[in-house]
Simulated scan of single mutants.
Amino acid sequence: MGSQLILRKADFFPRVGQAVAVADRYPQNVFAEHTHEFCELVLVWRGNGLHILNDRPYRITRGDLFYIRAQDKHSYASVNDLVLQNIIYCPDRLTLNLDWAGHIPGLSGEEWTPHWRLGSTGMTQARQVITQLEQESIKTDALANNMAEVLFAQLVMTLTRHRFAADNLAATSSEALLDKLITALTGSLNRTFMLERFCDQEQCSERALRQQFRAQTGMTINNYLRQLRICHAQYLLQHTELLVGEVSTRCGFEDSNYFSVVFTRETGMTPSQWRQRRNEAAQEGPVLR
């Protein structure tokens, strides 16, 4: 196997000893698999792409939030006007007496959930803090590091307050319609999703919702849901012994033959071929979990 790409502190932190910085991706292009000498928070503002984290694919779009540890390997592929920000930080350089591990999933090395969602309210508040943090992190005066760390603490708390599990529809009760829709789609991977029923429940225009979704994500609703299901199928094929027909059912496809056609069209391989390829790749070297 080729050597692993590692992003170095010296290339991303302007000052020696700096604890926090902001790396904008306007847009985020395809980026090869890599690890870091630092940790990062990833917030997606618009567009879409395929984020592969520790061999698990995630179809990402507006509102997705990831907590990435230094040793985690990830990459970006199939991007479409993907706009995100990376808030990068070095835990060993943080000096505030704050329970960082209690608010940043995975920081202590325990089992952690890397993928969360932010609704419109959380995104608005987080963006305001990030704007201040970005300005402070490029200053050179004596208080710059301390000010940046204080703002980072505020951001971490803001995310803790507003984040929710990607399929937790109940958490979106006070959020914008688009937030509810994306969460409802994520929560319907194993069953049919009826957009008409959703619009009736929310008393909204189906046509307007379709237009809003495409404007923010760069995808149609049907395409987004199909991509979510294919990502889930890839995960199940790699990490379980389920038969292809069982994977099909768990990913919302009533017909396993149709599932195979869609999977092949999206990935260039049949489900069985994809599973074999991933198994062979896993045997070539250790895979992070």
Rank of each mutant, 00 (worst) to 15 (best):
M1C: 12
M1G: 14
S3H: 06
L7R: 15
K9G: 00
F12V: 09
V16Q: 15
A23C: 10
A23Y: 05
Y26D: 15
Y26G: 10
P27D: 02
P27G: 04
V30L: 14
A32L: 06
E33M: 13
H34R: 07
H36N: 13
H36V: 02
L43E: 05
L43Q: 01
V44A: 11
N48A: 14
I52V: 15
I52C: 11
L53W: 01
N54W: 00
D55T: 15
Y58Q: 08
I60M: 04
H74N: 05
S75A: 15
Y76N: 01
L84V: 04
L94A: 11
L98C: 08
D99K: 03
W100L: 01
A101R: 01
G102A: 10
S108N: 06
E110H: 12
W112Q: 02
T113C: 10
H115C: 01
T121S: 06
T121M: 07
T121V: 13
G122I: 03
A126H: 09
R127D: 01
Q128V: 06
V129E: 03
E134I: 08
S137H: 12
A142N: 09
L143T: 00
A144W: 05
L155T: 03
M157K: 09
M157Q: 08
H162N: 14
R163G: 01
T172S: 10
S173H: 03
E175M: 07
A184R: 09
A184L: 00
F198L: 11
D200F: 02
Q201V: 08
C204S: 13
Q216H: 08
G218M: 03
I221P: 06
N223D: 14
Y224T: 08
R226C: 14
R226F: 09
Q227P: 01
L228N: 07
R229A: 04
I230T: 13
C231E: 08
C231M: 07
H232A: 14
A233H: 09
Y235K: 10
L236C: 03
L237P: 03
T240M: 00
V244W: 00
S248F: 04
C251Q: 07
S256H: 08
S256L: 01
Y258G: 12
S260W: 10
G268F: 03
M269A: 14
T270S: 12
P271T: 00
P271C: 01
N279S: 15
A281Q: 15
A281K: 14
V287H: 06
V287N: 05
